[in-house]
Amino acid sequence: MSAFFRSKEIQLAILILSFLAVFIPYFLNIPSDHPLNVFSTKLILIAGITNAFTLALAVYSQFRRGLSFVRRRARGYIFKIYMMTAIILMLIFWTMGETTGPYHWVMYAIITPLSSVNYSILVFYMASTGARAFRARNAKALLLLITGFVVLLYQAPLTGAIFPAINPLGLYFGNTFAMAAGRMFLISVTVGAIVFGVRVLMGKETQVLGFGSEKE
């Protein structure tokens, strides 16, 4: 039975059915209580629920792997103990409620400051990369350097307040060159994604669908 569900044909059939269930109501002019729309919404919900179960399985799998590490006293097993303890604690806290109590406290007092600090570290990497990358190595790099220079000056709010003339120039670079590049990315990425999606629907992307071993 499991072999049947794991077969390439069944997986592709589910894939195509799911695709059509979202694709058709998006394009057709049908009311929200139309059976096709209702089916589509139900399918999306089923996908969400299945996702949640898969996540539960993934947590279970992490836990099992962690236990195996600890039993073997493999390198870094202490961290696995820490991880499993954290999982158990968070599960217990979660049962006490998400909106108050220890779960809430962990999110506010531990996760959020750590997350914010890590994000802010990004500024150091960005500054260092920017400072090293802008070199007038040739005519094109010089143009880029001058543009970058103007945009950086414009981005600092004080500059615009002292030299208002920088504002239209900075806006011009942003609204023409940067936007043109942004549009180019959007178009090329979208087309690339659609073509990739069609290949997936045709079952041609064997490795990402988990059929890599069948190929050869």
Binding site: A133, M184, V191, G192, F196
Partner: peptide, 16 residues
């Protein structure tokens, strides 16, 4: 700026 090589736009989805 930070990479030696970069795949831009549709190059990554076309990679396979």
């Amino acid at each position: 700026c930070a990479s030696d090589y970069i795949l831009i736009g549709e190059e990554a989805p076309a990679a396979s």
